[in-house]
């Protein structure tokens, strides 16, 4: 009995901050302004404007995730192979940005990339032509990669650290060169870390509106921006909720795909 009571606070927390808000979103998403049932908020995703925002968000977050993975995996592997301890200075350097305010970091990039910003200032000083860096999809991807890279590095690094040296030695001993060891041992064994890394980068990247607001200007609208505007400026909570549900649906599908791939990945070496 007393053990059950211990779970109480968490149940209240879950009900209050997960289940009830979720139910509210579903309720708003499936009703119109007068409280009548409608699918219009969901189907609104089909309008060209919304569709474009959704696909752009999917594309940019997917690309950012891939870039993060390509940057993070070699880094994590190098850190692991050098046997740099988890509390070491090098690891600390990579985690350090996570301790700074997310908004502040993104604002810093805005300052750097601006038309009259730091980078263009340097280019001018070198008598090179100015570049339009801000308000481009590239700037958004840069922001996403910069902000979410640690979330890719850490899970992969943690999993790599758990792989026994002798497992790697055994593969080499059996004739595998570095590349074969990487593809047949390191990578398959680190797949759980890769998957949680992908999840932790892809989901926030897909739903972000801060990065696209600050680095994309008002020109580039991601689905996150659209939803945010419906809640704040448009004050159409029903439409915002409906689009949120669609976005949630896409996230669930991508998670399911990843989970399925993971299952297939288990036990197959190549």
């Amino acid at each position: 009995m007393s053990k059950k009571l211990l779970a109480g606070p968490y149940l209240i927390w879950m009900a209050g901050f997960t289940i009830i808000p979720l139910a509210l979103i579903v309720f708003y998403g499936l009703t119109d302004g007068d409280g009548g049932f409608t699918l219009a908020n969901i189907l609104a995703i089909a309008t060209p404007e919304h569709r474009k925002a959704l696909f752009l968000a999917l594309g940019l977050s997917l690309l950012s995730t891939v870039i993060c993975l390509l940057l993070a995996y070699p880094l994590a592997l190098i850190l692991r192979r050098r046997n740099i301890g988890r509390g070491s200075f090098v690891v600390f350097i990579f985690i350090l940005p996570m301790w700074m305010n997310f908004l502040l970091r993104t604002l810093a990039w805005q300052t750097l990339l601006e038309r009259s910003g730091v980078i263009n200032g340097i280019l001018t000083a070198l008598h090179l032509p100015n570049q339009s860096l801000i308000n481009t999809p590239g700037a958004i991807i840069l922001g996403m990669v910069y902000n979410f890279l640690p979330f890719m590095v850490l899970p992969i690094y943690n999993v790599l650290c758990k792989i026994d040296d002798n497992t790697i030695n055994a593969a080499q001993d059996l004739g595998a060169n570095f590349f074969q060891t990487l593809t047949r041992i390191w990578f398959p064994l680190s797949l759980p870390g890769v998957i949680s890394g992908i999840t932790m980068v892809f989901v926030p990247a897909l739903t972000t509106f801060v990065i696209s607001n600050l680095l994309g200007g008002s020109k580039i609208l991601l689905i996150g921006n659209v939803i945010e505007q419906e809640f704040t400026r448009g004050s159409n909570w029903n439409l915002g909720s409906g689009l949120s549900l669609v976005l949630m649906f896409f996230i669930l599908i991508s998670m399911a795909l990843i989970a399925k791939y993971d299952k297939n990945g288990e036990g197959t070496a190549f």
Binding site: N166, T167, E266
Partner: peptide, 26 residues
Amino acid sequence: NTVFQKYALFTHMNIAENIAFGLKIK
């Protein structure tokens, strides 16, 4: 070839794949 202290088998492969590892590499 070496037999390691804590076996160092490849946990993501079944027994046949473990044994076949060196031969497949070759």
